[in-house]
Write a protein that binds this DNA or RNA. Structure first.
Lengths: 335, 335
DNA sequence: ATGAAAGCGCTAACAA
DNA sequence: TTGTTAGCGCTTTCAT
């Protein structure tokens, strides 16, 4: 690889001058500039970002840490982030924790060692004090999707509680009284908030919460598939009339389980979901859902990051909440 | 951030000694080692990978460049790669070219500047000489999914030609004579090879190739959706009896288009695909497909990279071809 | 077994 | 406008 020194020698100037023409941040005479640029072309010189990073304390890399790399929702967020940061020269390092606190901490350490400029974190740990350590060390973190109450940091999240409350209220309005839920890990803020909204809606409408209808900790498709089958078998004599899936993956798992058990949606059992499933256009019935805008979350997070690194509003902590709306389709039976 | 120098001072040793205990590559007395490790803990010191990279010419970063970040197929490859390289300390930088040659070249340049140790490239350009430049500059490239004939580089690809040939032969055996195809960009090797297998199967069975049934360049879901609708309208008086979609995304687009036009699969028109669609478990009818193993491709690519960086077989060029098999389900009508 | 010092490729303060 | 030089944080050679 050709270095700035080789360019300087060949062009008979100092490395400083070469640096100046590359960065255009100090005056250089036209004549010298042309000579240097010509030499750069000839030699095919490209500046070494590693050296630059070391010198300038800036890597133009941002880490994105999510619980599940195969969930489309997080991929969409990543696309949103990418679309706003990539034009400014930033690259994304994408990591998956598999909902594992240890792995999350390890990844955060690795990103810290790599001196990424920012990390966008969809955390699935509740150990805020451990995350606080990273922040104290000077790591820049924006929480996405999830948030941790006691953590002094920026975040871009959805209005989980209110959206779920509205969705479940709608379900109750349709006459449902036996209402089940498939929750993620309740240690994760999104899952917790959604479940809280769920419970509050039941409470406000005097609907009893039937513990046997609640599935906990089935955060991915396969686990949900299995757990929902258990739950249905367990309650085969008195099934819930409707199920609330707390995210897209779980809705998919639940649908597959119900289909396999020959329970038709919504005739035999209704289903609603927080977030839309894949390829919803092709799947019958169309699910009634809370629509998420994952790409938008990514864009907001990207913009927030850019604002922070540019030095504006450096120290105030910002919390962006993306509103969610209910999309009523045809997976809920009127009773 | 605390540096090695601060550790050295506090522990009353030289930076060299600290370096030695961190890396464990030179003898250090037990006593000194303990003292240093204790200091490292106390100070919360973490080595700066940027500085390391600069010194050692090794970044432990690998770039992955794909045409479409929202296609699950590439995400699965990424997961495969990640699973084998991450345990050895490598991180993935994930980039999407949107099938745009310029953007591809720009990303490659950026990754080159970042001095990534390797790049895994699913290229959608045919400008092999431009890619050759990167290789000549010393960039390490493994082609994944796609390959370029004239390029001296390792690759991990599928057996596109033969698999498609077999699938189309099966379709013909079912009595089909009016056979359409939805191709990606024929400039991309995978698309080209699949289409060649398609044509050869027709030829060998004396089936005429009806140009009007061929859709070209609709590489993503939305474009395919639109183009297939055009194609159907164009041929409304004499529809093809079967369609071959050259990848999962296009199969999805085609399915949505057909559904919207009230053409039932397989009663009104049959459909086969190279690669499986999302959430196939929930979508009727189950598609007859060539099954791909994207995760395996990723794993193979990751392993190949690891082998190369470890210095084994450094100079021979390896071509791994993953076999594909046909999965017959029920989207093809027997005529 | 340990320390001193050079150097990876670059930028920026200082001098000229 | 340009050059000299120090230094970013680390590894490693060469002495000791």
């Amino acid at each position: 690889m050709v270095t700035i020194k080789q360019v300087a020698e060949k062009a008979n100037v100092s490395t400083a001058t070469v640096s100046r023409v590359i960065n255009g941040n100090y005056p250089v005479s036209e004549k010298v500039k042309n000579k240097v640029m010509k030499t750069i072309k000839e030699l095919g010189y490209r500046p070494n970002s590693i050296a630059r990073s070391l010198k300038c304390n800036k890597t133009y890399m941002v880490g994105m840490v999510v619980p599940d790399i195969s969930n489309n929702y997080f991929m969409d967020i990543a696309r949103g982030v990418e679309s706003v940061i990539s034009p400014l020269g930033y690259s994304l390092i994408f990591c998956s924790t598999d909902e594992n606190t240890d792995k999350e901490l390890r990844l955060l350490n690795a990103l810290n060692d790599k001196r990424v400029d920012y990390v966008l974190l969809a955390s699935s740990t509740q150990e805020d004090h451990k995350l606080q350590k990273f922040i104290d060390q000077g790591m820049n973190i924006i929480m996405i999707d999830t948030s941790l109450e006691n953590l002094q940091t920026d975040s871009v999240v959805e209005d989980n509680y209110n959206a779920t409350y509205k969705l479940i209220s709608y379900v109750i309005d349709q006459g449902h009284k036996r209402i089940g839920a498939v929750n993620g890990l309740l240690s994760v803020s999104t899952a917790k908030e959604r479940y809280n909204g769920f419970c509050k809606a039941l409470e406000d409408h005097d609907i009893p919460l039937e513990q046997s209808y609640i599935v906990n900790g089935a955060y991915n498709r396969r686990k949900t598939y299995e757990e929902v089958k258990f739950m249905i078998q367990r309650n085969i004599n008195k099934l819930p009339t409707v199920l609330f899936a707390a995210n897209n993956d779980m809705a998919e798992g639940a649908m597959i389980a119900l289909k396999e058990m020959n329970l038709k949606i919504p005739d035999d059992i209704s289903l609603v979901s927080f977030g839309d499933i894949n390829l919803a256009e092709l799947i019958e019935p169309r699910l009634t859902i809370i629509s998420q805008n994952a790409v938008l979350i990514g864009e907001k997070a990207g913009e927030l990051m850019l604002k922070k690194v540019s030095g504006n509003s450096e120290h105030d902590i910002t919390k962006v909440t993306i509103p969610s709306e209910i999309i009523i389709r045809n997976s809920v039976k009127s009773i």
